[in-house]
C-alpha cells in the first residue's frame, strides 16, 4: 500500500519536473522566436510624394533625367538610397507625361538615354529599351518601371508618388 503510494508520488514529481521544464521552455521560447523572426514580420512601408523638379525645366519630347534620395532607417543606422529616372513630356498638357525608372529590369544597372540610338541603353549587358521603356533587345525580361502616379503642385513642381517595395 505504502509502496504503491510512494510510486505514485514519485511519478507525480517526475511529471511536475517535466511540466516546470515545459513552462519555462514556452515562456522563454515564444519570446525568443519573436525576437529572432521579427524582421520577417515587420515591413517598413515607405511612401511619399517626392518633388523631382520644376515642370517647365523638362523639355518636351526629350527624356530628361532626374534623381532623388530616400533615407531608410535600418535598426539604429540611417542609410540614404538614391533613385533615378527619366521624365518625358509628350506635350504641354501636364497630364501627358511619361516617367520611367532608370533601373534596368535585368540586374538593376542604371540605364541612360542615348539620343543617337533613340533608346535607353544599359551599360551592363547592352540591353536597349525604347523611348516608351519597352524592351527592344538584350536580356531584360520586362519593360522599364513606370511612375504612374504624379501631379503638379501650385508652384509648378512635378511630384511623383514613391512607394518602397
Amino acid at each position: 500500500m505504502t509502496s504503491s503510494n510512494r510510486m505514485s508520488r514519485r511519478d507525480f514529481i517526475k511529471v511536475t519536473i517535466g511540466a516546470i521544464g515545459g513552462v519555462m521552455g514556452v515562456l522563454l521560447g515564444v519570446p525568443v522566436v519573436g525576437y529572432l523572426l521579427q524582421p520577417a514580420f515587420r515591413k517598413q512601408a515607405a511612401e511619399a510624394w517626392i518633388p523631382i523638379g520644376k515642370l517647365e525645366a523638362f523639355t518636351i519630347g526629350i527624356p530628361s533625367p532626374f534623381s532623388f534620395t530616400r533615407t531608410k532607417v535600418n535598426g539604429w543606422e540611417r542609410t540614404a538610397t538614391s533613385y533615378g529616372g527619366f521624365v518625358l513630356r509628350r506635350s504641354e498638357d501636364p497630364k501627358e507625361i511619361l516617367i520611367l525608372s532608370s533601373r534596368c529590369t535585368h540586374l538593376s544597372c542604371r540605364v541612360n538615354w542615348n539620343e543617337a540610338a533613340q533608346g535607353y541603353l544599359c551599360p551592363c549587358h547592352d540591353a536597349k529599351f525604347s523611348i516608351e521603356g519597352e524592351v527592344l533587345s538584350g536580356p531584360p525580361p520586362e519593360p522599364l518601371e513606370r511612375y504612374n502616379e504624379f501631379k503638379v503642385d501650385e508652384d509648378g513642381n512635378l511630384l511623383i508618388f514613391f512607394e518602397e517595395a
Partner: peptide, 12 residues
Amino acid sequence: PDSLYKDAVVAL
C-alpha cells in the same frame, strides 16, 4: 527525481 524536484521548483 527527489532532489531534482526541489531544484526545478527553485529554478521556476
